[in-house]
Simulated scan of single mutants.
Amino acid sequence: MAAKDTKDISPEHVAIIMDGNGRWATARGRPRLFGHQAGARRVREIVEACPELGVRYLTIFAFSTENWKRTQTEVAGLMALFRRYIEKEAKRLLKHGVRVRFIGDRLRLDAKLVKLMDDLEVLTSHNDLVHLTIALNYGGRDEVARATKRLARDVASGKLSPDDVDEETLPRYLDTCLLPDPDLVIRTSGEARISNFLLWQSAYSEYEFIDTLWPDFTAEIFAQTIGRFGLRERRYGAVAV
């Protein structure tokens, strides 16, 4: 029997918790922001590897609602890094057919960063080769809470009947309402927890916890991880026949 093509067994949607930037920098005697800069460069390589691997949707966890607890210096540096990333990568993302979306609560982000995010979404809105979603000031519980508020307002205004609310209703109010649920969630750096990332959406996702720190997570390691996904049997609660 002929071997399956990689794209036939690849996850359509991969989500990544990009962990380990700080430890990577510390191990080299450098400040944590040096690691975040290296991690940002790695994002480009992984995004551009997606088409060859059959991955159409890529969601990356860039900054959580809990990350505000870090030092003011690190948070300010990260926000500056996000602005530089958008300004530097916009044309390249457009050229490579990448459509960019941002999820998370934008209210706490500064106006300049939000403007850059909005502009990048509009600039790439006609692209369809890879759908890159960047989770920025994002938390799974926060997302569900915000979605529930919107749903409750629609019920209160009569737009939605309480009797019509079921498990198919809430996803329409989530930040990811235009995206399929992730097939595979990857976390780098050896930590084995999901850290409040895509809690609703990942109910039946496969997980890979990788020891490699994010700045060292190459396209080759990404391809190997995608390959292992093809060996899994996904039953969604059913029994294998």
Rank of each mutant, 00 (worst) to 15 (best):
A90R: 04
I226G: 06
E206C: 13
E48I: 01
R30F: 05
R234Q: 11
A238F: 05
A147T: 08
A80C: 07
G35I: 10
A223N: 08
G227C: 12
L113C: 10
Y85L: 05
K4L: 15
R187I: 13
K159P: 03
I86Y: 00
L136F: 06
R44W: 12
P51Y: 04
L53I: 04
R42Q: 15
I17F: 00
D5W: 01
F209R: 12
R23D: 08
Y207V: 14
D118R: 13
T26L: 10
A203T: 13
L120D: 02
G230Y: 10
A2V: 01
R23E: 05
T188G: 12
V241H: 08
R56T: 15
R30L: 15
N21L: 08
A219E: 13
A80G: 15
P162Q: 05
A27I: 04
S10F: 02
C50Q: 06
N196C: 08
S195L: 01
A49W: 01
A90F: 05
G97F: 11
T6V: 15
C50H: 07
Y207A: 12
R42H: 10
V185P: 00
V100Y: 04
A223P: 01
V114Q: 09
T73A: 15
H126T: 14
G139P: 03
R28M: 07
E208R: 15
A145M: 14
V144A: 12
D128L: 03
L179R: 11
V185W: 07
I17K: 00
L160R: 04
L109F: 11
T26Q: 14
V47T: 07
S157W: 02
A15H: 05
L93V: 03
V55C: 04
R32G: 05
G54F: 03
D166E: 07
R30S: 11
A62D: 01
R235M: 00
M117K: 10
Y207S: 11
R108I: 09
D19P: 00
A90W: 00
D163V: 01
L160T: 13
D163K: 04
R108P: 09
I210S: 14
L33K: 05
R172S: 15
I16R: 01
T169I: 06
Y236Q: 05
Q72E: 15
R141I: 04
K88R: 15
A147S: 14
D163N: 12
R42M: 14
I134K: 05
L33H: 06
P31S: 10
I16W: 02
A90Y: 02
N137A: 12
V100A: 02
N196K: 06
Y138D: 08
A62G: 00
F102S: 08
V130Y: 12
P171N: 10
F209P: 06
L160W: 00
